[in-house]
Amino acid sequence: MRLLLPLLLCFCFAANAAEAPADIKGAMTVNVYQAQHLHQLGAVFIDVRPAEAWGWGHVHGAVHLELTNRFAGLADPQWPRDVPLVIYCDSDVCPAAAFASELAVEWGYENVFYFRDGYFAWMLADLPQGKGVMGEVLQLNAGR
């Protein structure tokens, strides 16, 4: 019985989790292997998870922008609109990346990639990861 309760709770949570949309108008949905290729090409990865999740681990080199006023930094005209952006959350049951991808398209970004499978898929594929505190967001633009 002691083992059954945690399994039941996990099942109930999973059953109540809604899936994120499969596609976002104006963005290209990518899987983990396509995301890896974009990473190798130098695309900007944007992690929209909460700061605590970011600190536990994220795609190596990603920028942390929660869906708060900080995410509005992407609306800043100094960010080039042709920069490839790969936007992700935890997994396909996290709608934050879908919403952030919609915003990026709305703000005029031309190369928005919606990494629907998210960080958990990246981790499972054993791809490069970073941990710890986030760096300064606007420093990213200095090299572009």
Rank of each mutant, 00 (worst) to 15 (best):
A35V: 08
E52D: 15
R49L: 08
Q36A: 08
N31H: 09
V48I: 13
V63S: 04
A62Q: 09
A43P: 10
V32F: 09
F45S: 06
A62H: 00
V48P: 11
L41K: 15
G57P: 05
L38R: 04
I46C: 11
R49D: 03
H64C: 05
F45I: 05
G55M: 03
V44N: 07
D47N: 06
Q36T: 03
V59R: 02
H37N: 15
G61W: 00
V44K: 13
V59T: 04
A43G: 12
V48S: 07
I46L: 15
A51N: 06
A35K: 11
G55C: 07
W54P: 00
A35C: 11
Q36D: 14
E52N: 12
V63W: 04
L41G: 04
W54T: 00
Q36L: 14
R49K: 10
V32N: 14
G57F: 02
Y33N: 13
Y33L: 02
I46S: 07
V32W: 02
F45L: 05
Q36S: 13
D47Y: 11
E52S: 08
H64W: 04
G42R: 12
A53E: 15
G55W: 01
V59K: 03
E52P: 06
A35D: 07
L41A: 15
W54L: 00
Q34P: 03
H39K: 13
F45D: 12
Q36I: 09
L38V: 11
H64M: 11
V32T: 13
V59P: 01
H64F: 04
V48G: 07
R49E: 05
A35Y: 06
R49Q: 13
A51Y: 08
E52A: 13
W56F: 09
A43D: 14
W54I: 00
W56L: 02
P50K: 10
H60L: 05
P50S: 08
R49T: 05
A53P: 06
V44S: 11
D47H: 08
V63T: 06
G57T: 02
G55T: 05
H60I: 04
Q36N: 11
Q34I: 10
V63Q: 03
H64S: 05
V32A: 10
V44Q: 15
A62S: 12
G61E: 02
D47V: 07
V44P: 10
V44H: 05
P50V: 09
G57W: 01
P50L: 09
D47Q: 08
A43S: 15
Y33S: 12
V59W: 03
E52H: 12
V32K: 14
N31W: 00
A51K: 14
H58I: 02
V63D: 01
H58Y: 05
H58W: 02
